[in-house]
Simulated assay, not measured.
Amino acid sequence: MSEPVGPPDLSGAAAEFERIYRAHVGEITAYFARRTVEAQTVADLTADTFVQAIGSFGSFDPARGHARGWLFGIARRVFAQHCERTSRGRDTVVRLAGRRVLDVDETAELVARVDAERDGRGLVEAMTALPAGDREAVELVDIAGLGRGEAAAALGITLGALRIRLFRARGRLRKIVGEKS
């Protein structure tokens, strides 16, 4: 007789996801705070990132890369989708329908985080002169602090390609910053 098959024990996976969430939620929130000044949007994009991460956690393989790079890859896609929705001018009512209004403490915390990322936002704005791939490489390595391997995985490129992008982008940024001084 075989043993009855029941629902899988997700307590180990749930605990592991919670550990990953707690370790990286601040970095993911900061990533979005550099891109928008609206606290509610930062909260929504962060939540969307982790909702997508939960949905794909079963296929996450730590042998292929660190959770941090995996999460930043998801965050990049979430932000790209957000920009696409915004640029298409979809109905605001539809976008707002699922939002939870932040309480005063949560809003104050996110406003403080947005303010703390002001310098990072300034650099991101200066980086608009760079090609998208170079800009993303600098953002992930120099601003978000991902390791080169993690950033390469998040961008879906080789480590060598990432190094080339970083070298090229940093040179261009030094030139841009030098011209503005």
Rank of each mutant, 00 (worst) to 15 (best):
S56H: 10
H82C: 00
D105K: 14
A97L: 12
D105I: 09
D103G: 10
T36G: 09
L45I: 08
F79W: 15
A47K: 05
F57W: 14
L71I: 08
F57L: 04
L96Y: 09
T49A: 09
E106F: 03
G69D: 05
V104I: 13
A112F: 05
D103H: 15
R77Q: 10
L102S: 06
F72W: 02
R88A: 14
H66M: 05
S87H: 14
L110G: 01
F60W: 02
Q81W: 13
Q40M: 10
L45F: 15
Q81A: 10
L71C: 04
C83D: 11
R68E: 03
T107D: 10
A97R: 12
A80I: 06
R85I: 12
V104H: 14
H82A: 02
E106S: 15
A67W: 01
G55T: 13
A47P: 00
R99N: 05
A80Q: 12
R85A: 07
C83G: 09
H82I: 01
T49G: 03
R34K: 11
R100N: 04
V51G: 00
V114C: 07
V104W: 06
Q81V: 04
S59F: 04
R68I: 01
A97M: 05
W70Y: 07
V114I: 11
F60N: 01
P62H: 13
G73Q: 08
L110N: 01
T49F: 03
F79C: 07
R113Q: 03
T86W: 00
F72P: 03
R76L: 07
